[in-house]
């Protein structure tokens, strides 16, 4: 076969003139994540739950505050899930629409999880990266402080906080945020210590790049993988914590509700034959947790392929 050398030359020139797009580690990770079936399943679950939390109120026939007097007192017989009277998930003990209540509960639970995790990411990353990068006395001091805080039984403190300052949703956010960053700062510090020894950090120091810029430009981008994975896995833990507190009756207060509070109510009335009051909140609770755990695992596999 004869190849037209003129054409080949011009082709070679054209390819060497144009800038080649690089394939970043992020792009690689994205490809691996999207080809992971379990992670995609988890992502679909999460999207579904989020859409439910955001737009569920537009589908609901009843608001979460209204009491349906036609079923009140006969919840066990008439409050079951039905499309006819608009209570898709049935009603709760008082005759309130459980669909609207579940939407509200999912909103609160997701918010607690995501805000708690966000606090952990911001505070924990900055704290851990600082301690790890500067090392020495500062590191010792900062990490011992974390050790002391971790040694305090947080559930006890959280319950005390809620009892002392009243059961409010803000207090719950504060309490969850206070504890969530500790573990994160430890992980980030450990990761920073390994990164600090890498030659490219040394190269940056030799160039004369100031320490805050090294942390921002070289350490943080290499931490993001670990932080994202941990944050995703932290969200369900936060939701679990909040649900546990709410289950104890100390979490969010009426008329607000969370999935934990709804499950608590549902389990209280299970002996009266109103199984749906437990089943629907529990279903959304489980779906959310599954979604986050699957996505978290998928992210870990995608971002750190060597770790498998």
């Amino acid at each position: 076969m004869v190849i037209d050398s003129q054409k080949m030359k011009s082709l070679a020139e054209a390819t060497s003139r144009e800038d080649v797009a690089g394939r970043s580690l992020w792009a690689d990770a994205r490809r691996r994540f999207f080809s992971n079936k379990a992670a995609m399943f988890g992502l679909v679950l999460l999207v579904f739950v989020t859409l439910f939390a955001l737009f569920g109120n537009y589908i609901a026939q009843w608001s979460n505050e209204e009491i349906d007097f036609s079923v009140m007192g006969m919840v066990a017989e008439q409050g079951g899930p039905s499309i006819a009277n608009g209570h898709y998930f049935g009603t709760d003990d008082l005759g309130r629409d459980l669909f609207a209540r579940t939407v509200q509960g999912t909103q609160i639970s997701l918010a607690v999880g995501i805000i708690g995790s966000a606090i952990a990411v911001v505070v924990g990353t900055i704290y851990g990266a600082t301690a790890g990068y500067f090392g020495g006395r500062l590191d010792n001091f900062m990490m011992r402080a974390v050790d002391i805080l971790l040694a305090i039984p947080y559930m006890f403190v959280l319950i005390l906080l809620l009892v002392m300052y009243g059961r409010s949703i803000t207090m719950l956010f504060v309490g969850v945020g206070l504890i969530s960053w500790l573990e994160m700062s430890r992980i980030v510090r450990g990761q920073t210590l390994t990164l600090k020894g890498r030659e490219y950090i040394e190269a940056a120091r030799a160039i004369g790049v100031p320490a805050p810029v090294i942390i921002r430009r070289h350490i943080l981008p290499n931490l993001i993988g670990v932080v994202t994975v941990f944050a995703t896995l932290l969200v369900p833990n936060m939701i679990l914590t909040e649900s546990f507190i709410s289950f104890l009756g100390l979490g969010v207060q009426e008329p607000m509700t969370s999935l934990g509070a709804l499950i608590s109510e549902g389990s209280g009335t299970i002996s009266y034959g109103t199984l749906w009051q437990l089943a629907f909140p529990l279903l959304f609770f489980v779906l959310t947790l599954f979604g986050f755990f699957f996505v978290g695992d998928g992210l870990r596999d995608a971002l750190d392929p060597k770790d498998r």
């Binding site: 970043s24 030659e199 490219y200 290499n222």
Partner: peptide
Amino acid sequence: QMIFQDPLASLNPRMTV
């Protein structure tokens, strides 16, 4: 300026060349 021993390790993997 300095050149380092391990060529790949001395380059930040998240940055473009």
